[in-house]
Design a protein around this nucleic acid. Sequence first.
DNA 1: GGGATTGTTGGATGATCGTCCAACGGTAGG
DNA 2: CCTACCGTTGGACGATCATCCAACAATCCC
Lengths: 102, 102
Amino acid sequence: MASDDFPVPDMSDVALVDVLRAVGDPIRLSIVRVLADGRPHPKCSEEWGFGVHKSTMTHHFRTLRKAGLTQTTVTGRTHTVELRRAELDARFPGLIDAITSG
Amino acid sequence: MASDDFPVPDMSDVALVDVLRAVGDPIRLSIVRVLADGRPHPKCSEEWGFGVHKSTMTHHFRTLRKAGLTQTTVTGRTHTVELRRAELDARFPGLIDAITSG
DNA sequence: GGGATTGTTGGATGATCGTCCAACGGTAGG
DNA sequence: CCTACCGTTGGACGATCATCCAACAATCCC
């Protein structure tokens, strides 16, 4: 399973309403707020202390990626996820700030 | 049916994730963008040119109100809806701007 | 009062969503 | 090779959601 198996939409194709729907879930919003530090995070990180099943996390990470919020990099058997910060800031100015502040 | 029949949550009780979920729908996002002009708008306004049933609009207006985004004023047989702009800006700085710009 | 306007309520329906589980597939390390 | 680890896939299930429809309620105007 390579990084190519996690395609990302063109940011110009990303609709605001889809971004909002993606972050309109407690777990996904928490993920985005952690990712807002700008660094890549492993999917298995202990930071995600939600009490949900592995496959549920897979579902949430996929939802965020397909909504244009994140991108996944595969290195060996670990996956790291990262916020598409610069692109998001260019497309939706102030949105990520507003969502992740506080 | 008076204005008291449309209770509004305390802004301090409003969670960001609920606001985001409320606005994560095409129709409700459009409503909020129209309301962003700061003026009250009648619920029956022609501005809402979505091809949906009356009761569907009732559902969306209720969803927005319960999420803390709007407030309703009843005058006679017409209802006007209004964005709780100042309160929202104080609670979630930059959010409404980010959502309604562009 | 009678009819038209404005909007809500309740129920029904089909779709989507969040979650879990079992099974599978690479990858790394002994 | 064999095992442990990391993560995905597919299916299943209950809950929520957006929508429509019919019926109702309140208000305004003639």
